[in-house]
Design a protein around this nucleic acid. Structure first.
Lengths: 346, 346
DNA sequence: AGAGAAATTGGGAGCGCTCCCAATTTCTCT
DNA sequence: AGAGAAATTGGGAGCGCTCCCAATTTCTCT
């Protein structure tokens, strides 16, 4: 299967290499007649330009890297990442980019990241999942000069471009809803407070309390880690303090909280109400179906790629920031039997 | 950030381009003295070879494509795929290959697959998720001459290399276990019968029945689709026929089945026992914890890459076949309170 | 019809490597 | 010491494109 080259096609079509290149790349300045003639040969022969050669000559690979650091890729099981990945993949397909995925199993892997990823000729730019635990990585990446955009507001790199949802407003709307339902003792299982998602959702929680003239009670706040187990143990710590309601910072943790609550013999929403965050498909199948804050994960993935491509085209300045709104999806776990939904926008 | 080339390093080290190339690629026939000297310059300058240039010159990209067809990538949410992807990524890291991920959102995307993926200079080989719905794709791929290996036994392409688990033996062991526990009316929610995983697990189910002198009852068999909803509706169809036990062909479907069973007021394992397949992390957190057939998903991913690399090195003949054993993990949903586990090997 | 402008086409150089072979250096052995 | 073999080193060609500029062709206008 010796594959054809531009030169072969040129010979077959009786034109020059340059002309074939122009046809393939849809450049102007080729006469209709010649263009058609060349296309015919291309169709007949099934010619495909060699991407390595194109990368080398044009100094662009048309490859985007999706980097999920180790501290979060343990959670790759969490449906959040597959969703995000689907969005990123979809946008890549549409823009004719190839998606390369960088996951890490060991610390060793991760330390090799930058050397590996920043090799010239590999990726044109990077979509990087936000995480605090890998500061070094962020800094190195900034310094390497390779264009990147962050999924979720980064913790310290202040001038980076990122795409995020409005976690503060999302949490705020959920907790205000609980207040409106008459809850007073509202507890929360937060995300990891080393992530901006964790911090922002806690911030929204606090704001909603203070605007409702409720005090923030340390005893009703415990840190989780976005895993089912984290939700389970978090709820176990909180339940002795008799909360009427729990705002849990992710659906997966909310499932764990429900498990802990059921084990103690309490009923949801009869004895205690629960609200999650994410609106993953499982939220609807939980027992009881989970009231939760929906975030548009797939759209986030698409927007990340679009933002990165914009940076590739027009340069990194000024830093791009895109914040998506969230939507409170009311189901049974909060005890409000309305099926209406309510928007929260930044 | 003008990046350095081989030639630059050669000049700095006072040797030729060829010698630097040999050092970088760890080729023999370089004197210790020169090798060290060149390495020092490389370290100091942080030189990284340009991958596009290397691809073009060596005719190998060191990129592996992971292709998940549309008919299954809807299920990318299913933790199975993220797991598999992690294994594939891990093996790629270890072998210094880059992983490119091909997911599809629309039919259009998918029809473009082969043209896109088979472009010269893009990937050296492909790991393809098995699926029946995309026969054309398989055939085209075989004909294109691009090396590939299939995750899961493919339906029709008989001479393809693949890596799979022994689904028949896995299902067999689960059902035999149910028989040993005294169950007689055993139902099953199968996987899609357009997949070899679905067919093989049904085959194992039937064999276990027949070896136990139990008849296969059409009414106790219904086809599912590996989704939670599929398990839910499948159980609803089966429950009127009063099964004592259900063998459900995936954990995700088993969760749906549990939901349906609980809704009818029946208790697990009191009134009906349930066994799943996969041993995803959620299996352990189900209510009650799920007895299930464990398959080594991550290992599967690793082996897929190893097999592909072997094919790249030694050619596609003869076709490689790797079958992993499964392990029956006994928890509470089957009513056997032993914590022991029992091996099933092909 | 013919000059000048505009559009189209072709060819050279270059992207940064690998790979081969010839040239050079170093080693081994009597 | 010096011939012959072995190890090391260097340079040319080539991988298959893009991009630039010069050459050629076609169009436009009086």
């Amino acid at each position: 299967m010796q594959s054809l080259t531009l030169e072969d096609i040129a010979q077959l079509a009786g034109v020059s290499r340059s002309t074939v290149s122009r046809v393939v790349n849809d450049h102007p300045n080729v006469s209709q007649r010649v263009r058609q003639q060349v296309w015919e040969i291309i169709q007949q022969t099934g010619y495909q330009p060699n991407l390595a050669a194109r990368s080398l000559a044009s100094q662009r690979s048309n490859i985007i890297g999706l980097v999920i650091p180790r501290s979060v890729s343990n959670l790759f099981i969490d449906p959040y990442f597959p969703r995000l990945t689907q969005g990123v993949a979809q946008a890549c397909n549409e823009s004719n980019y190839t998606l390369s995925l960088f996951l890490f199993h060991t610390e060793q892997d991760e330390r090799n990241l930058l050397p590996r990823i920043s090799r010239p000729g590999l990726v044109d730019g990077i979509v990087l999942q936000s995480t605090n635990a890998d500061d070094g990585l962020f800094l190195q990446l900034s310094q390497s000069g390779i264009p990147f955009v962050v999924a979720g507001r980064p913790m310290r790199v202040l001038d980076a471009s990122y795409v995020d949802v409005d976690n503060i407003a999302g949490a705020y709307s959920a907790v205000r809803h609980l207040v409106h339902l008459g809850c007073r003792r509202i507890g929360t299982i937060t995300g990891p407070l080393t992530t901006t998602a964790g911090l922002d959702r806690l911030e929204g929680f606090k704001r909603a309390l203070s605007e409702s003239n409720l005090d923030f009670d340390e005893q009703l706040c415990t840190e989780g880690d976005f895993t089912e187990g984290g939700g389970y143990y978090g709820a176990q710590r909180l339940l002795p303090h008799k909360p009427e309601a729990l705002f849990v910072a992710s659906d997966i943790m909310a499932l764990g909280a429900l498990r802990a609550i059921h084990e103690t013999g309490l009923a949801v929403p009869g004895d205690i109400v629960v609200v999650g965050f994410d609106d993953l498909p499982i939220a609807d199948r939980a027992n009881p179906p989970l009231t939760t804050v929906r975030q548009p994960i797939r759209i986030l993935g698409i927007k990340l790629v679009e933002t990165l491509l914009d940076i590739l085209e027009k340069g990194p300045e000024p830093p791009r920031r895109v914040i998506f709104g969230t939507e409170l999806v009311i189901r049974e776990s909060c005890g409000a039997n309305r099926s209406a939904t309510q928007m929260a926008r930044s």
